[in-house]
Design a protein around this nucleic acid. Structure first.
Ligand code: FES
Ligand code: FES
Lengths: 145, 145
DNA sequence: TCAATAAAGGACATTTTTGTCCGAATAATA
DNA sequence: TATTATTCGGACAAAAATGTCCTTTATTGA
């Protein structure tokens, strides 16, 4: 509802890859899709986008798969994933669908909407994959129901 | 991005109807679509939903059109429109797309996401059509670019 | 070198959302 | 009563998002 399905899968996949990379396991699309409960082929497409955007790293061939450097887990924030998949409409779009959000000619919801949108952006820009992966690691959070 | 197109049009239409009802003008779909810059026939469909949900009132025939009681302008909050058109997924859905959002088995983003979602809900539940229409009336806000 | 394994990428299929069209129902008014 | 202006409702169409399939490419290890 806030993010596209593709983006939801992308974030879940990235978090799972980060989790496994924490103990140096490279993971395949099949395993990822299984663990995050997502359609395999569609997930593969999304992983291609993440790879092209240097969010995850991929290796072909046997023993290949996806992984994330320990460093990237800190530097890659959710905002980067969202931007790669959904673009920046979530950051700059008007809540009521005007062609652009513009404080000089605001829609009736502008002021209230901007507050929330800013909170969302701040949250996404400050949340790293590492942070999300560690919650998973200690069993506090889950990637599927 | 946050709301569907249908919902965006629905809110803009409702605000415009409220604005005109402030000085007792009933408005037609054609006028509404013109003034909020939306596709006429699609807007008509959305207005039907708003009518069925008692958000606006419609009158058929010549001199007919849409209107909103002065009282309803206060009691109808944006949350009612959003719920009528987009349902309640925006309020109860998991940000990462898990089948349901559940604090007992949260996704990695749950805590941070819930904060923002709650702010959004609170904002929608506390914002009335009257409030939005008055900003328009005095020329502070706009419904099209 | 060859078979097996995995990602990459393109074409296609399905579903959902967005949008259109047209006839029926309703009501005002001449 | 006939005409006209309006919403209502259903069927349809187009576009976008979601999802599938299959072939190619890279890499490993026997
Ligand atoms: S103009 Fe609508 S949110 Fe800024
Ligand atoms: S479980 Fe994901 S937002 Fe609550």
């Amino acid at each position: 509802m806030m993010f596209s399905k593709a983006c939801e899968y992308g974030i879940r996949a990235a978090v799972y890859i980060a989790l496994q990379s924490l103990d140096n396991r490279r993971v395949s699309v099949n395993e990822i899709a299984e663990e995050i409960d997502s359609p395999v082929a569609f997930t593969a497409k999304i992983l291609q986008q993440l790879t092209r955007n240097n969010i995850v790293h991929s290796v072909k061939g046997p023993t290949g798969g996806f992984e994330i450097d320990r460093e990237a887990m800190d530097t890659v924030k959710l905002s980067k994933i969202v931007k790669a998949i959904d673009g920046d409409k979530i950051y700059v779009g008007c809540g009521l669908g005007l062609k652009e959000c513009n404080a000089d000619r605001p829609c009736p919801l502008h002021d209230k909407f901007v507050d929330i949108r800013t909170d969302l952006r701040t949250m996404l820009q400050s949340t790293s994959l590492y942070e999300l992966a560690t919650g998973l690691e200690v069993g506090l959070t889950y990637l599927k129901r």
